[in-house]
């Protein structure tokens, strides 16, 4: 590379588990460069042992999220010129609120375990003898579900959530949002099981409604709408004596 080429100074977290430190790399500036391009350049040209995760590179798969200058972002669609400081420096770390496997790869297992804990999966109940549930695409419920199911499971909101940081049991915005879409779904059964699952000590009532999840969600989803609705539904259910949860 030419000596006078503009460079980025990139601090990258290296290590595994709770141990590690920052390592600096100088990376040449390119046009339309994304954070994922930076990480790939380091791995290909500076240090092949750097670990990170990605798959689609177009904002579909949700596997490339990291902390960029202390904020959670999908790195394949985050342009360097949007986030680099004016002295052309960048800090890259694994996603917050999750254990670190190695370097920039966080372990997403706890994030997905909470989806299961929140009963945030389809609960089929009908058989082939039953009528097919009518789904009205124009209904308000369906419009809400349509927006919320655009979630790509990237865990950016989970990393952004201060309640997750302070409360290891908190289910987090993405799992609660998916539980809500399941609850709203005409075809789903076990609605009480879903409401019980989101009403426990790590449930939706712990959310402080400050909206970091909605602020950082790269798909511009708003898990707060789902969480506020779950709070309302579970509170009324409790007041009407419909649960002991």
């Amino acid at each position: 590379m030419p000596a006078d080429e503009p460079m980025l100074r990139v601090s990258v977290w290296r290590g595994s588990g709770t141990k590690g430190e920052f390592e600096n790399f100088d990376v040449p500036v390119r046009e339309n460069q994304t954070i994922l391009d930076i990480v790939s350049w380091i791995q290909q040209y500076a240090d092949p042992t750097l670990s990170y995760r990605f798959a689609c590179r177009v904002g579909m798969c949700g596997s490339c999220a990291m902390m960029v200058n202390g904020e959670p972002r999908w790195t394949c669609r985050t342009h360097v010129n949007k986030v680099a400081s004016h002295d052309n420096s960048l800090t890259l770390e694994p996603l917050r609120n999750l254990p670190v496997i190695k370097d920039l790869a966080a372990d997403l297992a706890p994030f997905f375990e909470k989806w299961v804990e929140a009963e945030a999966f389809h609960h089929p109940e009908s058989t082939r003898e039953d009528e097919i549930a009518a789904v009205d695409p124009e209904s308000a419920e369906r419009a809400g579900i349509d927006a919320a199911i655009e979630c790509i499971n990237c865990a950016v909101c989970y990393a952004a959530c201060d309640t997750v940081a302070g409360n290891v049991d908190y289910l987090g915005p993405a799992a609660l949002q998916r539980a809500w879409t399941q609850f709203q779904d005409e075809r789903a059964g076990s609605k009480d099981a879903i409401l019980d699952a989101v009403s426990g000590s790590g449930g939706c009532h712990n959310c402080h409604s400050m909206g970091s999840c909605a602020h950082y969600c790269p798909n511009e989803l708003n898990p707060l709408i789902a969480i506020a609705d779950l709070k309302r539904i579970t509170a009324w259910r409790r007041l009407k004596g419909g649960s002991n949860a």
Partner: peptide, 12 residues
């Protein structure tokens, strides 16, 4: 660590 009971008690 708030469940729905504590949440309701606080709102009411």
């Amino acid at each position: 660590m708030l469940d729905v009971r504590l949440y309701l008690a606080q709102r009411i």
